[in-house]
């Protein structure tokens, strides 16, 4: 298990309060299969923390235990000092969740979906502001199936905020999105962090982790193989004498795609998205 470095961001370094998320010696077995094998890490308030790893690394199992959807075989999870195993409802009230492979009701409009989810938290959300945040303010009466894939993912992000959570968990939020839609989502996530929220996201896109995360934990076969800032992890690798075969290209196919198609998507220019970045 890797040591846990102190967070490097200034906003995350004032630590009189408990960590936003504390995972300690977490173990999860499914019959004989060990999905998570004794991982520990803290996420400080205001951080964007990434769980990186290939399929089957244990990221989703970890997030499911953090949300209280699964019980850990052993170990503990605390959200702002509240143990989710013993105070599930209180801990969940502090969590915003965007789950992988979770859907919404077909028969409700976007506004009604947000109101329904808000009611599940015992709150009345500001649906206009939530839809405005994800640039869907003009479609409160649309159904989810009328939206594009990128719009659906953005709506899912808005749905994760209905309870005004200080900690937001995003399980592979940009999976299946085209590069432009993905960059838009990143911009939204960064703006959330600027608003004082803590974000934990799982991803298997290295570029996404590098762009967004203050710290990342690299998971493999149920353990954390490395945890630090992306730059520090890269430096640690370079220090071992690693050298990447350098191929200098002035542009990639992704650059071509963004140049050709990314100027406008849903009324947002790529330039604007980059300025926000």
């Amino acid at each position: 298990m890797a040591t846990i470095p102190a967070p490097t961001r200034e906003s995350a370094s004032h630590t009189a309060q408990p960590p936003a998320l504390r995972v300690a010696n977490l173990v999860k077995h499914y019959k004989k299969f060990e999905a998570v094998r004794g991982i520990s890490f803290d996420v400080q308030p205001g951080e964007i923390f990434g769980l990186l790893g290939p399929n089957g690394a244990g990221k989703t199992s970890t997030l499911e235990i953090v949300t209280g959807l699964r019980d850990a075989t052993s170990g503990s999870v605390e959200i702002f000092g509240i143990d989710i195993a013993h105070h599930r409802a209180e801990a969940r009230a502090l969590l915003g969740v965007q789950l992988q492979e979770s859907d919404f009701f077909d028969h409700l409009t976007l506004k009604e979906q947000l109101e329904f989810l808000g009611a599940c938290y015992g709150v009345k959300p500001d649906t206009e502001a939530l839809l405005g945040y994800v640039d869907l303010a003009d479609r409160p009466n649309w159904r989810l199936k009328q939206l594009s894939g990128g719009q659906q993912q953005r709506f899912a992000l808005a749905a994760a905020l209905v309870n005004d959570p200080p900690l937001v968990l995003l399980d592979e939020p940009s999976t299946g999105l085209d590069p432009t839609a993905r960059r838009q989502l990143w911009s939204l996530i960064r703006r959330l962090q600027a608003g004082g929220r803590t974000i934990v996201l799982s991803t298997h896109y290295m570029e996404e982790a590098e762009e967004l995360c203050d710290r990342v934990a690299v998971m493999d076969r149920g353990v954390i193989a490395g945890i630090d800032t992306p730059l520090a992890l890269i430096q640690q690798l370079i220090d071992t004498g690693f050298k990447r075969e350098v191929v200098v290209r002035d542009a990639t196919l992704e650059d071509v795609f963004l140049h050709l198609t990314g100027n406008t998507l849903d009324g947002v220019s790529l330039d604007d998205a980059r300025k926000e970045d």
């Binding site: 709150v123 500001d126 405005g132 945040y133 808005a158 005004d164």
Partner: peptide
Amino acid sequence: SGEAILAHGSAA
């Protein structure tokens, strides 16, 4: 229009 939602502590 969505700026109000960005800061934690904004939901009624």
